[in-house]
Amino acid sequence: MKSVRVRVCLGLTVAALLAGCGGVKTTSSGGGAEGNYPTGNIQMSVGASPGGSTDLITRAIAEGLGKELGVSVPVVNKPGANGALNAKELQSAPADGYKIAVQNASLFTITPLAVSAAEAVKIDDFDLIGGVSQDDYMLAAHADSGYKTIADLKKAGKTIKYGTTGVGTGAQLASALTFKVAGIPSTDVPFDGGAPAMTALLGRQVDVATFQLGEGIENVKAGKLVPLAVFSGERIKYLPDVPTAKEQGFDVVVSQYRFLTAPKGTPEEVKSKLFDAAKKTFATDAYKKFNEANFLTPIEVPPSEVQKMLGDSTSKYKGQVEQYGIKLGSA
């Protein structure tokens, strides 16, 4: 008797499943005629946990987009695989402009050098909306170590232990390249993110470490860490006295930058509407202050330029990694 009832109920469930298909939403996103986009909420997904740079940037942009477009712009965190999980989800979302994301350059230019092909994502699978900002890397040593430049590391005449913030990150590539180009014997000590790497450097468990500006700049200002180099093309306004690696004679230019993406095939007018709204957001004082507070350099450029930057860095990194025989991961 009981089992019959259970079966009836399961049948009901299946019927409800079939009847109810379609019309499901996570953040009540909109739809409908293209001309008057947007008619509903625009969801921005983040391929990282709350609190990281990508998350904070997305939330700042979401707030601005919401004001400009007059719809609400909820942010959803989908952390996993350095953002690849979120990328794959965005890739298969409908290309109607109601699901967009800020993504990292390193996911497309560096991570594929370290992971298997199945886990790598390609920028060609997305439409670019526009550039956002650049987040630079610095190489730093403990103040008590006496190192001031990359050349000092070479003079030390020992194997330099360097901390990095994980496999397939710009920090790993930048430091591996530096030591190879400069011909300094070195050991890579990977950490699970910026905070443990910073702890190890402050505790002098490693000789030097590479991390993003925002993670270490306060300790530089406090005189606990000494920046040896930044890895941007030109000097960074937040650390104007620190020479780039290139200035010091080592051709290592690695930066993290972020840009707005949509699923492939999103209509042109939708993308331009989004980029216009983003540009208006970028122009607000609140957003400019946000960039300063997070040590970000704006690169609010059109999609074609982002495409070019990505293409250039992909081929450059690939060439350098091959030239110097660097192994970032298992790929």
Binding site: C9, L12, T13, A16, L17, G20, C21, V24, K25
Partner: peptide, 13 residues
């Protein structure tokens, strides 16, 4: 069922 028809009906059942 949740991603297909939302959480309400499956939760109710």
């Amino acid at each position: 069922a949740m991603p297909l028809i939302g959480f309400e009906i499956p939760s109710l059942l």
